[in-house]
Each structure stands twice: as C-alpha cells, then as structure tokens.
Amino acid sequence: MSESLIPAETLERVGEVLSGPVTTVIDRREAQRYAYAVGDENPIYFDEVAAQAAGYRTLVAPPTYVTHAVVQPRTAADLRTDGLYREGTRIRLLVDRVMFGGEEWDFLEPVCVGDEITATVRLAAVDQKEGRKGPFVRQVRETTFVNQFGDEVARSRMIGIAR
C-alpha cells in the first residue's frame, strides 16, 4: 500500500454535512424545460391526465431533475475560471486532480410538480484505492432528498476520483 493521500483531518470529516439543507418547490415550468432540454418528452412530465393514469398524484419530474432543482442562485462573482462556482466547503487531499467518476441513484418515491424538496449533502466516504495508474482517492458525496411529507424520495451518490 502506498502512503496515504488522505490527511487525518479529512478522514474525520466522513459523515459531515457539506451543504444544505436547502428547500425548493418543484416548478412545472422548470421541470418541463429540463425534460425538453434532455429530449425526454414522456407524457407523464407534460400531461396531467397521463401522469394520473400512470398512478402519479400529478405531473412528475424526470428522475434526476431533483438534483438540479435544488441548485441555489449564486452571483457571477463566485464563478471560478473554469465556470464552476467556488465551493463553500473544501475537502483537503494530498492530490488535486479531481475527475467526475460516476453517480449512483436510488429513486424511492416520485417527485411531483408542487412538491417541496429538502436536499442535504454529506461526505459519505473517502477512501484510497490502488489503480492501474497508481493510487487514487475515491470521494463519495451523498445527497438525500426529502419531500414535504417527510419521505425520503431520492438519494444520489456522486463519486469523485482524485489522483
């Protein structure tokens, strides 16, 4: 095993809330704008009768839309040169080239137009792995989404790879 790329202070932060909770109401116009941008014109996103015939309370949002719905407005002064917003909470590692590795979603309950969704992001895991190109650090940021009834509706785990 190579030497650790994860400082002790970072290991201690596993489980910590990185952002949120933030609460957003799912807006019909925004959810439909998203579905059109994807090119997913499923009637359950656009036609209330079709959505109810499929067993939903009302119009549904596309499955992963919820993660975009909770993005909070930010000033352009917060943009970095790569166009991303500066993060409030940084996780310190001894490597700095970070790539987006993938994502895992659980969809537990439908997210419908008008629902009030509260999102909380936690540092779920930080671990070191041995890859073909040497050691790398895998970071998992888990977001939980809870609706106005207190039901967890979705969970997303975003996997970042740093080397």
Partner: peptide, 24 residues
C-alpha cells in the same frame, strides 16, 4: 438523464424506475 430515459421509455409509464448507476 438519457440512461433513465432509455429505461423509462422501454418500461412504460406504469413502471417505476428504482435506481440507476453510471460510470464516466
């Protein structure tokens, strides 16, 4: 989002997508 569309288009409106994972 296309991966989810691929599955939901196939499965039909009465189905429920339970989960998806992808690697970049």
């Amino acid at each position: 989002a296309w991966l989810t569309q691929f599955v939901t288009d196939w499965a039909g409106p009465a189905a429920r997508l339970l989960g998806v994972t992808w690697q970049n």
